[in-house]
Write a protein that binds this DNA or RNA. Structure first.
Lengths: 211, 211
DNA sequence: TCGTTGTTGTTAAATAATTGCCATATTAAG
DNA sequence: CTTAATATGGCAATTATTTAACAACAACGA
C-alpha cells in the first residue's frame, strides 16, 4: 500500500540521526548504551528514543540498555539499507556531480549506476566511474536496468517532464532537488530537498533572533 | 504586521512554499486568491493556510480573499528577504559551486560575497564572479566584512572547527551541509541540510511501500 | 542467594498541531 | 437598496506528537 504501517514521518525522519550517532559510537568501540546516555549525547529525551525504537520492536534489554552494533544494524534494516538500492541521477550539473562524488552513500548501500543530461556538452563526460549519457537514452535504460531511486537535479522547468517519464517507466522513488512540487501517483515516493526553502527558513530565524 | 514570538518551526517551514506558489501566481498575472483556491493548488487545508498567515497578521479581506502581490511581499518581509543578506561559502567543492551558481538565491536577496577553501589547488580559481580564497584568510575577512550567513559545504571532519571559527568571529547564522550536528551558542541559528538523512528517509518510504 | 541499582517497554498525561466551524465583513448582482 | 454568495479571522474540537511515570525484569555485588 501507500505509506508504511502508519508510522509517522516524524519518527522516520529521526531514524537516520540515530543511525549516525550509533555509527559513531560503534566506530569508537562503544558496546552498549542506555537511552539516557544517548539522549544526553543527542539532546533529545530518553522517552522519545525508546518510544521511537519501540515502533519497530524491542531492541533493548532491561537493566542493560541497547547493544550499539546490533541496534545500528536493525535501524539500517528498517531504513532499507540492508539491500542495495540502484540509483540514477538526472542532471549532471554541479549538484548532480556533488551527489555522485559523495562517498557516504555507497557505504550505506546506495549504488549510483547511471547519470543523464540533456546538454550535449555534458554527454560523454566522465564523473567518477560513470559517463554522462543523453537523457534521450533514459527510457531505453529504464527498460534494461533495475532502478530503485532516481535523483532529479535538473532545473525547475525540466523537472515535471522528467518525473512523468520516470513514473511511466515504473520508477517508484524520486529524490527531488528541483524547486517544484512533483505530481506523482500515490505509490511513487517523493522526497524533496528544497534548498531555497531551507535558506529562507534560516533567514527567518536569523532575522527573528535579531529583533 | 505584528511579528509574533514563539511561532513554531512547522509554520515557518511552510512559509517558503506559500511564497513559491504566490510567486508563480503573481507571474501568471493572478491578482487575488482565496485560501480555498490556494488550498486546492497546494494540497493543504484552507484552514491551515489562514491560520499560518494569521500568526503574522490579517493579510486578507473577507469576501475578497488575499491580494497575491501584496501577500507575496508580506511573506518576503516575514522571511527577512526585504533586506540583503550577505552570504559566504566555506568549501568550494561541487556542492559549494552548485549553490553559488544557483540563480534563485540572488533573486531573493541573498548576495554571495565570498568563497573559501583549504585546498591550495582550489584557491585562486574562479566561480562565477568570485575567486576562491584560502580559508586562512577567513578570520581577517570576517573582521572586514559584514557576513549574515555562512554556508558550510566542507567535509564532516572540518565542519566543527570551521563553525567554531565562524561563531567566534560573530557569525550568527550557519547553513550546514556537513553531516554532523554543530554545537553552537543559542543565539547562533543553524539550519541543517543532511542529504544522507533525506536519502535514507526516501529509502525507508520506498522499502515500506513495497511490502 | 538476595537485595539494590539500572533500564526497558508501555501506558497515561500533557503539549502541540491541525482541522472544523461560524459570526461577521465584503463583494456582486438585480 | 437589498439580498445572496463569498471568504476571512478567531476560537473550539479534534488529532497527533511528545513527555512523564512506572511496573517488570536484568545485572551486579555482597
Amino acid at each position: 500500500m501507500v505509506q508504511g504501517k502508519g508510522i509517522s514521518q516524524a519518527v522516520i525522519g529521526r531514524l537516520p540521526r540515530y543511525y549516525r550517532y550509533l555509527n559513531t559510537l560503534c566506530n569508537a568501540g562503544t558496546e552498549r548504551i542506555s537511552s539516557q546516555e544517548l539522549s544526553k549525547l543527542m539532546h533529545v529525551t530518553a522517552s522519545q528514543i525508546r518510544q521511537d525504537l519501540n515502533h519497530f520492536g524491542g531492541f533493548g534489554q532491561q537493566g542493560y540498555g541497547y547493544n550499539v552494533a546490533y541496534l545500528k544494524e536493525e535501524i539500517a534494516k528498517i531504513l532499507g539499507m540492508d539491500t542495495t538500492k540502484h540509483v540514477i541521477v538526472i542532471g549532471a550539473g554541479n549538484l548532480g556531480k556533488a551527489l555522485l562524488n559523495y562517498p557516504n552513500f555507497s557505504k550505506n548501500g546506495f549504488s549510483f549506476t547511471g547519470v543523464f543530461d540533456s546538454d550535449p556538452a555534458k554527454v560523454g563526460k566522465s564523473i567518477g566511474t560513470l559517463t554522462v549519457e543523453d537523457v534521450k537514452e533514459l527510457p531505453q535504460y529504464l527498460k534494461e536496468h533495475q532502478v530503485d531511486i532516481a535523483v532529479l537535479t535538473v532545473p525547475r522547468e525540466g523537472a515535471e517532464a522528467n518525473a512523468r517519464l520516470l513514473v511511466e517507466s515504473g520508477v517508484k522513488a524520486i529524490w527531488n532537488f528541483a524547486h517544484v512540487d512533483l505530481e506523482v501517483p500515490a505509490d511513487v515516493q517523493v522526497e524533496n530537498v528544497h534548498l531555497a526553502d531551507s535558506l529562507m527558513k534560516l533567514s527567518y530565524n536569523y532575522s527573528a533572533a535579531r529583533k
